[in-house]
Every structure is written in C-alpha cells, then in structure tokens.
Design a protein around this nucleic acid. Structure first.
Lengths: 392, 392
DNA sequence: CGACTAAATTTAGAGTCTAAATTAGAGGCT
DNA sequence: AGCCTCTAATTTAGACTCTAAATTTAGTCG
C-alpha cells in the first residue's frame, strides 16, 4: 500500500498560482487582471495577490502602462505579462555527423542557433564540441549559461523514461557518452535525453502538422525509419524507450530493412542507373536528390523508383495506422519535401492496406523537427517545475 | 487559449478526503486514525474530520470495537473501514455466442456470476437477455439494481474513448446494439464499453500476470488475435479505439491471417489428419483440444502442429515486443493452458526475432480475464467519481 | 485505586479564498 | 472648474481549511 501525498494549506495558492502562470504563459502579450479573472474563475483579490507573487519570483512582470491607443473608460487596469526572457532553454539535435543547438526563450521563440560537425572519435571530444556549440549559440543571443533552465536533447537511439540509453545490445552503447552528466557537471544544466523520433512527434504537435491532434504517429523517414507516437497527447516510450520501433519490418513482406526514403532512393536509383535509366548517370553518383530531380524532369526510370518508394512508405503508414490507430500520420525527417511528392500516391494506396486509414500529412518542419521538439521537451519540463524553480 | 480550472476553498478538503478514501480502499480491513495519519501525512484532527465526512456520505464505517486480541495500552483507537458493500459494480463479457455477468463489491470481490447464451437475432432480444442475466446475477447475491454504481462491458470490437463502437466498416456496426443507452434507460446504469483485449490487459495488471508492471501488452490468442496495451500503467486506445489491432499480420510474412491458437490448431490439425497423422482421426472431427491431447500423448504430427503454432505466436510476441517495447507480454484468452505448453518454445524463439525481447507469461486468469477487466474498469470509474457520487 | 499510555478532543493561530463595500483614476460633460 | 460615469483597485468581513500545542479521555496494568 502506498502513501498518498497530502497538501498543506498552501496547496490552494499553489494551484492558483499555477493556473494564473499557465494562462499568462499561453497568452501572447499582456493580460489585464479582469482578463485573468475570466480565464481562471478566480476573484480579483486572488488574481492580484497571485500575480504579485509571480512578479516577486520573477515569472511575471507588470509593464509600466504602455496603454493601448484611443480613449478608454474607467480606472486603468493593472496588466501583467509572462516574462519569456526570465530564462532560456536549449534544444539539441545529436546527429551522427553533426550537432545542432537551438536557444529559445520561455515561450519557445528561437533566439539563436549553432551547428558543429561531430568528430566520430573520442567521447570527451564529442562532449567538448557540443558544449562549445551550446556556448556559441548562447553567446550569439547574449545569454549566460546560468540562464538555461533545461536542455532537451535528441538522438537516434532508444531512450527510456529516466533518460538512459538502453543498449541491451552493445550497438546502442556508443550513443550513451555521458552527455547529461557532463553538462550537469560543467554548467549545472538539467539535460533531458530523448529519442529523436519522439521529439519530432512533440514538435509536430506543437508547431507542425499535428497541432490540435491528440493521437498521432510521426515517422522520421530520412535515412532510417523510426516513429514517435502520441496517444491522448502523451508521448509513449515503453519499458526501454523503444516504443514505436519498426525494426520488425526487416523480417516482413517485401519491405526489406527499415530503410528511409533517401536510402531507398539512392539504392534503387543506382539500380535503375545500371540498367540504363536516369539518363545514363553513373550508378555511383546517384543521390536521392538526383533521383527526385530526374523524376520531376519526366524520367521514366526515376518515376518508377518513386512509385516503389511510395508503395513502401504506404505500407509503413498502413502499419502505423493499424497498430497505433492514430488520427494522423506525419511523415517527417530531412526529406520532407521529397515526401510531399510521394504523398498523393501514399494516400491513394492507404485504404487498400488498412481498415483504419489515418490522415497523412508531410511535416512542415523539415529538418528542424528534432531541435524544435527538444526545445518543447525542455519547455514542458520547465513548465512542470515552474513554481519550484529559483529563477537566476 | 483555454481556460484553466480554479479551485474553491473546499479543494483542500476534497483532496484530503480523496487521499483518505484511497488509503481506506486499498487497505484490506480497518485502519486506526493513527495509521491513517501515517499514510496520509495529515493531522489527527483532519483525519477524524474527513473520516466522519466519509461515514456521513456512506463511503466508510466505524465498526463498533471488535478489538484485536491481547493486552493493549492507551486509549482505544477509533478505527474506520472502507464500506466495500456501499454499492456494487457489474463486469460483462459480451461474447459472440454468450454473455457473462459478474457482480462485484467495491473492493472487487466477486459476489455472483451468471451466463446466458446469446440469440444471434434481434438486437432488442440481445439486450433483454443481457439485462435478464444481470438481474439474475444481482439477485443471486441479494443486490438491487439500484446498488450498481457502474458497469464495465467488453466486446471483440474497437471501442473509442467515448465508448462508441467505431464501425467505419459496416462489419463493426453489428456490435453496436445500443446496450449502453438501453441499460441506462432501464436501470440508470452507467455503462462503460470497452474492447475485450483492453479489459484483459486491465485484468492482468490487477490480478493477473502483470501485477506491478507498468508497460505490458496482453494478447488474446484464442480464436482471433487482439492485443491490449498498457504504457506507464495507462490503457492505450488510439483515435478510434483500434490501438493494438494486429490485422496487418494478415498481409505479412508467413503469419497468415490473424488467427488465434485454437483456430490454427483446428486448421493445421485437420491438415495433419488428412495426411494420416493424429492416429487417423477424421479431419472434420479435429478440435483444438484433441490436437493438444494428442501432442501430450506423444503423437508426432500433433507435436509438429504445436511447433508451427509456437512459431507463429513467437512472431506475434516478437512484433509486440518490438513495437510496444513492453516489459512483459501476457498470452491470454480461453486457451491459456494450451498456451502454457507452447511457452517454452515461444521463449526460445523470441531472442532471434526481436532486439528487445519482453518477458513472456501465460495468463493465470483463463477465460475470466475479460469479465474481471470489466469489473476493474467499472471500479476505476467509481473510484474516480467517488466524492461526486450519491450513494444509494 | 492510582499510575501509565495512547488516542481523542479542544483551543489558538495562520493561510487561503469569496463577496460586498469602499476608494481610486481617467475621461467626458456642462 | 466641478460634477458625472465608468471601470478597476483596494479594503473589510466572514468562512473554510489546515497545523500545532495543550488538555481531556478511556482503557490497561500493577
């Protein structure tokens, strides 16, 4: 039998402060006390008390009357605003060959960005590179490392709910190079490690194709295929962070290995080239972009390759539709624009492949999905801890 | 921007009452006020006030001093207990050919059970049969229909979060025969419709193989194969209630249609019989039980059938392991004892089929999983609404 | 019968909220 | 200038809730 937490007399204040802060956070600008009252169902007295609390703690500010234009009636309203600049968060995309760091304010607006190539060698050096990149980005927007309230970081490996890279297999071990501990030690940063497809899902829900959708599967389909799944708006991770892995596709059907769009385009494009298609391009030089370009120019062989890819993707989308029964499947990753050309064909195939076809969209976020999702993850963490955080 | 709810001054009391009630509910018997204080971190004064509230409302009782044996020091403690008999819940398994109704008290102890064959014809008649069965079960334990605080009901169809059977396809339409509305109208019962595999998952988590496990996939593998998935202890439903559907297996690999263990045993058993196996049994007479019995007797052909079935099940378990990454996969359904004979073979196959093999167990609940899960579902609903319910 | 003990009850005090009454600031009108 | 109107801020009174400390109570034990 487990204990149930119990509240002190401050619980009510805590709840109300949270509610007010949440309303302020979501509002784009200043809100008058009366507006706050409408949104929270609290009394004026309470709202004012809470707001003054929040100002005290640094979460809100009361801008000095830059009042709206035109004539106004009545006593001027006190107005409060969320201090989006009270701190900052970092979103990091830990790619295989490079790392990208995004700095955002507490409303999620991007302040700066920095990218570095990643040496594949020593771990210590990788960490140094990432730290340096983060510092560069912070400097670019005039923020101090002490402003950072949370850091989201995404990598192409399963990560469990505690942020551990769970390499049962030794293969994943290389991904766990102690980044979280290192950044905590150096800067005192709270680092939230996450699978990249999961972050992409958060990003789509936040600012992408899945706004307002509660049940969605996001498929990163660039080089490898991986999926992030939201159910009832919640991210699913599974016991070891492997929720949404599609590796089983490799032992299934004609799908082959869980290869992404880019990889398939290269592979099958090269095949087509050896057989004389693609304008006789040398097979070794075939790139994904080249195949798509050729298809646009009307090359028959290239179009055939696209058809094959579309069928594969349709099958993957069908499986996602069936197993997770989402309202929407988003195709994302670095190849989003290519994917949008496959979209009509995928949609056409889908009803034949599943009894519960989801809506299918292509991500409007392109390659930014993972960093944005990392920012979102960090912001969620900050929001959840707001009233426990001592602002710098 | 959405409103955030705000509390009145009663919030604290509400939270505390909830906490105390929860502790009482989980305790097996009486608890002294001091014990309650330990578990809730509340003051004695508060605990007593809350308990008297709860007694007033009918949720708790203060039994008159059937004090423990042996010598005791100090003033006798006031002791309170959850009133498990303050109401009742119903758990219904709506099978294709029969309906089973379970009556349970508010702690989930079974009070009575009744089963009826189901006429496949008119819907009105089906509802009558179910209602009659429920009344029979209630009568058997001396409960009135007015005692019923919630009804859980499971059927082999996708059901969304609002309890609607979502037949995009006409096929599912037949499952939605207005049971919830009818029972509400006749008895004022709150009916919670749910997919049967989902209920099985709840049952396993409650009293089955998945106690204490947060991430689990439960596979009903009797006639058809369906799965219920819990992630972080929460049931996953998806947009239309179809989460965990495995229909895609039909277009995959050598798995064939999503047939269950019993169906495969009959089918392949009959094949084996035509080829002279199974001691020359007439193919039409081959039943699943016969195949299993023959295998136990050492029949080679029957054993071969079992091997084939084990391989199929191993593949399904592997896919569940990969996609949902649970800590545990439970094989349930009416064929649980048969499944336990397949278990070693399934476990042996698994590591070769997935990178994230889950633990595999066979359900100890047998055919009772769905009704038990339905009871659990109803109890959860009651627990969530406790303080809003007016007890009869 | 009194001492001991654990628990119940009482009392005092501090937060929090709402609701109603009062006061404050700005503009408009005569 | 003086008064009116309007909206919002502030003040005041009252009601809950909780905790903590002091006091009383109901048993057991010697």
């Amino acid at each position: 039998m487990q204990d149930v937490t119990a509240p002190g007399p401050h619980l009510v204040r805590w709840v109300n402060a949270r509610a007010v802060l949440e309303v302020l956070r979501r509002a784009s600008g200043v809100l008058s006390v009366s507006e706050l009252m409408d949104h929270t169902r609290l009394t004026r007295a309470t709202v004012i008390a809470v707001c003054e609390d929040l100002v005290q703690r640094g979460w809100a500010e009361e801008p000095d009357v830059p009042r709206g234009p035109g004539p106004q009636k009545g006593r001027p309203a006190r107005r409060f605003a969320f201090r989006a600049d009270a701190g900052a968060v970092l979103g990091i995309d830990l790619g295989v060959a490079k790392a990208t760091v995004l700095v955002a304010d507490l409303r999620g607006e991007t302040l700066a960005q920095a990218t570095s190539g990643m040496p594949a060698e020593a771990e210590a050096q990788r960490i140094d590179t990432i730290a340096a990149t983060a510092l560069r980005a912070l400097e670019a927007c005039g923020r101090s490392p002490r402003d950072v309230l949370a850091v989201g970081a995404g990598m192409a490996a399963p990560v469990d709910r505690e942020g551990r890279v769970v390499g049962g297999q030794a293969f994943w071990g290389q991904f766990d190079f102690g980044l979280a501990e290192a950044l905590d030690e150096r800067f005192g940063w709270r680092v939230l490690l996450e699978n990249d497809a999961n972050l992409a899902a958060l990003a789509e829900q936040w600012r992408g194709a899945a706004r307002g959708v509660e049940d969605v599967a996001v498929m990163l389909a660039g080089e490898r295929v991986g999926a992030g799944v939201l159910e009832s708006g919640r991210l699913l991770r599974g016991h070891g962070g492997g929720f949404g892995e599609l590796a089983f596709l490799s032992m299934v059907d004609g799908v082959g290995a869980p290869a992404g769009i880019a990889q398939l385009a290269r592979e099958w494009g090269a095949e087509a080239a050896t057989e004389g298609g693609l304008g006789g391009m040398p097979p070794e030089e075939v790139s994904a972009e080249a195949v798509f370009a050729a298809a646009t120019d009307g090359d028959e062989a290239a179009r055939a390759v696209l058809d094959r890819i579309a069928l594969v993707m349709a099958r993957v989308v069908a499986i996602l539709s069936t197993v997770f029964n989402p309202e929407l499947v988003v195709i994302g990753g670095a190849v989003a624009d290519a994917a949008s050309r496959l979209l009509p064909r995928i949609r056409a195939q889908l009803p034949a492949l599943t009894a519960t076809p989801a809506r299918v969209e292509v991500s409007p976020l392109g390659g930014r999905a993972v960093t944005l999702g990392a920012v979102r993850r960090a912001l969620d963490d900050v929001a959840a801890r707001s009233l426990e955080i001592d602002l710098p």
